[in-house]
Simulated scan of single mutants.
Amino acid sequence: MSLAATPPVAVGLQTFLAFDFGLKRTGVASGNRLTRTATPQATVAAAGDAKFDAIDRRIQEWQPDALVVGVPFHPDGASHDNTARALRFARQLRGRFGLPVFEVDERYSTTEALSLQGFQGPKGRQGRGSPADADAASACIILEQFLRSLP
């Protein structure tokens, strides 16, 4: 399964909140079309309705024009359980908040975020940040990838 190119509906949208969905933690980043950069926000460490309550507070605070969700795939492009979970999360965001939601292939974003944060690997997290920081950094990578794809 591959994600379609950014739809033309993104034209005119200026501000975005991005999410690196996880079962335990969801990384969050904010960014805009003008600078094409993303800023990490506090990671949401909640599940179920509590997760959506925290996201609602972020949406109220940032007033984004649209949302971006990272969708993980295997290196060969094949989908897996977390692919379906992230796509479901994107559908839930659309339904709950009525904002456009863009899906971005996020293969390797967490690995890249861990690398940028100075982590030694999944078991040896002796780097500068915490796992939650890695989730927010992943959301930044996802959002910046999306912003670079815009005309």
Rank of each mutant, 00 (worst) to 15 (best):
T111S: 14
A86L: 06
A46T: 00
Q145R: 15
A78W: 00
G48V: 02
Q14K: 13
T37D: 03
R94D: 02
K123W: 13
N82C: 01
D81E: 13
L116K: 15
I142S: 09
D49V: 15
P7H: 04
S149E: 01
D81A: 14
F146K: 07
V69H: 06
A139Q: 07
Q63G: 05
G27C: 05
E112I: 14
Q145M: 08
G129F: 11
T35V: 10
P122E: 14
T37V: 10
N82V: 00
S138W: 01
G121M: 10
G121N: 08
I59H: 14
Q14D: 12
R91W: 08
G31C: 07
G118Q: 12
D105H: 02
F102W: 07
E103N: 05
S138D: 01
A84G: 05
H74G: 00
K51E: 09
R25L: 13
G121F: 11
T43R: 08
Q126D: 13
P122A: 15
I141N: 08
E103I: 00
G121S: 10
G95K: 14
H74T: 05
V71C: 01
S138E: 02
D56H: 14
S138N: 01
V11N: 12
Q41P: 04
G98A: 11
G127Y: 02
D81L: 14
G95C: 05
D133Y: 03
K51L: 14
L143G: 06
D56V: 05
I55N: 09
L13F: 10
P122V: 15
K24M: 08
R33Q: 14
R58Q: 13
L34F: 10
A18D: 06
V101L: 09
G127H: 03
